[in-house]
Amino acid sequence: MNGTTGPLGNRSRHAAFFCYHSVAADGPEYLSIAPEQFERQLGQLQRSGWTTGAEAELERLGGGERPDRPVAFLTFDDGYVDNHDVVLPLLQQYGARAIVFVIPPLVDDGLPLRWPGTEAHCDRFPQVMRSMRWRAVEALAEAGCTIGSHTLTHPRLAGVGDEQLRDELLEARQRISARLGSCTTLAYPYGNWDGRVLAAARDAGYRWAFTVPRDGQLATDPLAIPRIAVDHRDDERRFALKLRPLARRAALSPRRATLLRPLFAAQRAVRR
C-alpha cells in the first residue's frame, strides 16, 4: 500500500473523508446526528471554502490532480431511509453531493438494518433503523450522489471464508450495477478489512473502498481510504477541528488517544 502523503490518505488540505450513518431527529447515539446539525455542517463547509465530492472527484484525486478548492467526501454507510428523506433535500439546498453505501437485499424491501450490534437500536428506533428502497436510492443517484456497496449481509469481512467473501462483494456490486448501471465504490462493514479482503475487493471489480480505522491507519490505498467518523458530538468547533489536516493526522495515527487529547482539551478551553 501507499504512504499517507496523498489526498486519499485523509491527511492533506486537499481532501477530507467523513463517515456518517443516519440523520434523524431522534436516533441512536454515534449512528445518528440531528438534521439541523448536519445542515450546520454543510453551511460550515460552504463558508470555509470547501466543496463536496463523489466518484468523479475520487477519479481526479486518484489520477494525481489537485483540486482548486478542498473537497469534503461525505459518505453514508448502511443506506438509512433518512439518507433520502432528510439528507437529500439538504444536499440539494447546499449544492452538495455524497457517497451512499447500501445493502441490496435490504433495499429490495426496505428492511430493518439489523445485524450483530444493532438489535437494540432496531427495537428502540424502528422508524430510523430501516433501509431505503430502490426508488429512493435511484433518486440519490439522479441528484449526483454516488451509490456504493456495503455488501449483502454486513459481516465482518476479515472473518468470513473465501467463498462468502467473494459473494458478499461481487453479488452486491452486480446487483447495484444492474439497477444503476455501475458500482465501483465499497465501504467495508464495521470498517473491518485486511489484505485478503482488499485483494477480494479488487478482484470483485471495485476501484475505491473505504475504512473507518479504530486504531489508526498509517498506510492508504484506493481500496483502503480511511475516513473520520462524524457523530452527535460534532458541534461547530469539533467539526472545524476535523477539517484541519493536523487533527485528521492525529485521528488516523496509532497514537491517536495521546495526540488527540491536547487538541480536544484546547477546544474545551475555548468553549469556557
Rank of each mutant, 00 (worst) to 15 (best):
54 A>C: 09
120 A>P: 04
19 C>D: 05
110 G>K: 02
18 F>C: 05
24 A>H: 06
70 P>L: 10
70 P>R: 11
8 L>H: 01
87 V>I: 06
70 P>D: 09
25 A>T: 13
86 V>N: 02
117 G>Q: 07
7 P>N: 07
54 A>R: 02
70 P>Q: 11
31 L>N: 08
98 A>E: 10
6 G>K: 12
33 I>A: 08
8 L>R: 00
94 Y>T: 09
62 G>K: 02
47 R>T: 13
91 L>M: 00
30 Y>H: 15
57 E>D: 15
110 G>S: 04
95 G>M: 12
28 P>G: 06
108 D>A: 05
12 S>P: 00
114 R>M: 14
30 Y>V: 15
84 H>G: 07
25 A>S: 15
13 R>N: 13
116 P>Y: 10
64 G>S: 07
110 G>T: 04
20 Y>A: 04
33 I>D: 03
27 G>D: 03
85 D>L: 12
74 L>Q: 06
29 E>M: 14
62 G>N: 05
48 S>T: 14
50 W>I: 02
97 R>L: 07
14 H>K: 03
53 G>A: 10
9 G>F: 00
21 H>W: 05
34 A>C: 13
81 V>C: 13
53 G>C: 10
12 S>A: 09
118 T>P: 01
83 N>A: 10
28 P>W: 02
12 S>R: 04
44 Q>Y: 11
18 F>S: 01
11 R>A: 04
26 D>W: 13
82 D>Q: 08
99 I>G: 00
116 P>T: 14
70 P>G: 09
45 L>G: 02
93 Q>I: 12
27 G>V: 00
60 R>W: 14
31 L>K: 10
56 A>M: 10
47 R>L: 14
97 R>V: 11
6 G>Q: 14
107 V>H: 02
74 L>F: 05
95 G>S: 10
57 E>N: 12
